[in-house]
């Protein structure tokens, strides 16, 4: 129920094969149980690569990753890819795409559908369930993929830009939805976000990565009490913390 990342470095071969490009350079990270850590950093700072290493899609050149859980009655790790369209199965309805998450864990089809309907109902997911992915908007598609990740109730969860296709209002709504989902089924959540407000609003700690090769520049504990509401975004405390993060970010990208 924790994610521990120690001294991870990773290089990729460059296009001409003669050289390598270093993407990650000694990253340390901890995501404790029941907490949300937001990864924030310039493009190319290796955020997605880090998630890929944690999920073992890619191996690291050095360092180690430890993803832990105490029991095995829930999946150890969930990962919603940045390109959410890849995760959707175009021949399945939205409902069945979510139910796929349960079926992949061995739940029979009829039961999975029933539980999925109940789950979507309970948390107020609004997409049309009997539509096919190509009939949904980008934001709805992304919500389906999120629902599929959450219905599995993994002990640890990686979300890569999970709300990128949503409009502002839907974004706020789903941020609160994700937080409430975590309260019911606590997990260690590592979130990549390009939106500084979102990263601060959701997380317990914001980790700022440098530009390539990515390493941790600074960690910002986010002390605001939960439950939070979006009114927080207009408060002086929030603005002050936001200013610090922006200053550190600007210094890093050299503006």
């Amino acid at each position: 129920m924790t994610i521990v990342v120690r001294n991870i470095s990773k290089s990729f071969p460059a296009k001409d094969d003669a050289m390598t490009i270093k993407v990650l350079n000694g990253v340390d990270l901890d995501v404790p149980d029941g907490q949300i850590v937001a990864l924030f950093g310039p493009n190319g700072s290796g955020k997605t690569t880090l998630l890929n290493v944690i999920s073992r899609i890619e191996s690291s050149d050095s360092g180690h990753v430890d993803v832990r859980a105490n029991t095995n009655d829930r999946p150890l790790l969930g990962y919603a890819l940045q390109n959410f369209r890849d995760a959707l199965l175009p021949w399945k309805t939205a409902l069945d795409n979510v139910a796929f998450g349960l079926m992949a864990l061995g739940v029979p089809h009829a039961t999975a559908r029933q539980q999925t309907n109940a789950f979507l109902e309970e948390y107020g997911f609004k997409f049309p369930r009997m539509s096919y992915p190509y009939q949904l908007s980008g934001g709805q598609q992304q919500t389906v993929v999120l629902a599929r990740s959450f219905i599995q109730r993994p002990f640890n969860l990686l979300l890569d830009e999970p709300f990128g296709a949503l409009d502002h209002e839907a974004r706020f709504r789903i941020q609160d939805l994700v937080i409430s989902l975590l309260q019911k089924a606590p997990c260690a959540l590592l979130l990549v976000s390009h939106d500084i407000d979102e990263a601060l609003y959701m997380s317990d700690e914001l980790v700022l990565l440098s530009h390539r090769p990515g390493h941790v520049v600074e960690r910002f504990p986010v002390p605001f009490q939960r439950p939070r509401s979006h009114v927080l975004l207009a408060s002086p405390e929030f603005s002050s913390l936001r200013r610090q993060v922006v200053a550190a970010f600007l210094k890093e990208v050299g503006v």
Partner: peptide
């Protein structure tokens, strides 16, 4: 077959 589709399905436990 889209590689990422297979990868996403595997990540979901398929």
């Amino acid at each position: 077959i889209p590689r990422n589709r297979i990868m996403a399905a595997r990540l979901a436990g398929a």
